[in-house]
């Protein structure tokens, strides 16, 4: 029937539109970055200076800031994320405590970024400042370490729920075989569950890392916004996302705006590949797990 043919065409159209949307995002970013790409070329990525007054722009301080905060956040959150994943995936699958934990992590995931930043600013920053004073470090309070701390709290629910889903894919007869041989739970986790799910857990951490890299508001509010390469974890800095958030509306010259969009393009490319690889691994795992 004619209506069915139109409808089926409509389905394809919607699918195609979304693919087109993602493609156009990339193309638009490239086009809007062209003035900056022309001016600074690839050396934009490795240059050390970001100076809006002299209109000299380069990305290295922010790339370093982004990597430092994200790696540190991932490192801090890792033991907690894995603990929650094993707790809810293996130790306490049902019952009041595990559903409370599941609820709590759901809520943590639902708290808006700006509230994390706000809380970090008024609760963590003074705390870090005291800490810095007692270690005789300049007491900024804000800085890379503070941002990492807030970020790590934010990605725990994400990383743990990804890891838990992967652990749930481990066939239970494999685990039971392990227990039947007299293994303790620790040994089953180490020898059966972990080897089976390691690539999925890796993918989950990768995706959490991608989240951390792109996270904007919470970081912007506690990182101190300094456009230079940081020399210590307790110094103020900026990430790719936070400098865009800070300067976009204040950019007066076209080249400044274009350079900020260039930073956005770099951010897009990094997170695109991280998400692509992470999702491919998980897609493949869940297909294997089903068959």
């Amino acid at each position: 029937m004619l209506r069915d043919r139109f409808f089926k065409f409509g389905l394809k159209l919607a699918g195609g539109l979304i693919a087109l949307l993602i493609f156009s995002i990339f193309v638009s970013l490239v086009i809007a970055s062209i003035p900056s790409i022309k001016e600074f070329g690839l050396s934009f990525v490795f240059g050390k200076e970001w100076n809006p007054v002299e209109e000299h722009f380069s990305a290295l301080p922010f790339i370093i800031g982004t990597l430092l905060t994200s790696v540190l956040a991932l490192a801090i959150s890792l033991p907690f994320s894995l603990a929650i994943a094993f707790f809810s995936g293996e130790f306490s699958k049902k019952g009041l405590i595990s559903s409370l934990i599941a609820y709590a992590t759901d809520l943590l995931a639902g708290i808006p970024s700006v509230i994390y930043g706000f809380w970090g600013l008024f609760f963590l920053v003074p705390l870090i400042r005291k800490l810095e004073l007692s270690f005789n470090i300049p007491p900024y309070g804000v800085g890379i370490f503070t941002a990492s701390l807030v970020l790590s709290i934010m990605i725990i629910p994400y990383a743990s729920s990804m890891a838990r889903d992967v652990i749930a894919l481990v066939p239970s007869d494999l685990k039971e075989a392990g227990f039947a041989l007299g293994s303790t739970r620790l040994e089953v986790i180490k020898k059966v569950i972990f080897p089976y799910s390691v690539s999925g857990i890796f993918a989950g951490l990768l995706l959490a890392f991608g989240r951390a890299i792109g996270e904007t508001m919470a970081v912007t509010m506690v990182i101190g916004n300094a456009n230079r390469i940081p020399h210590s974890l307790f110094e103020p800095a900026n990430t790719l996302a936070s400098v865009i958030a800070n300067e976009f509306t204040e950019a007066t010259s076209d080249i400044h705006l274009s350079s900020l969009i260039y930073l956005g393009l770099i951010l897009f490319i990094i997170t695109f590949f991280i998400n692509y690889i992470g999702n491919m691994i998980i897609e493949r795992m869940s297909v294997n797990g089903r068959s």
Binding site: L21, L207, R211, G214, E215, F268, F272, N275, N279
Partner: peptide, 10 residues
């Protein structure tokens, strides 16, 4: 999934 993972600032 990639779109969902893109930074909101982008």
């Amino acid at each position: 999934n990639v779109l969902q993972g893109l930074p909101s600032i982008v």
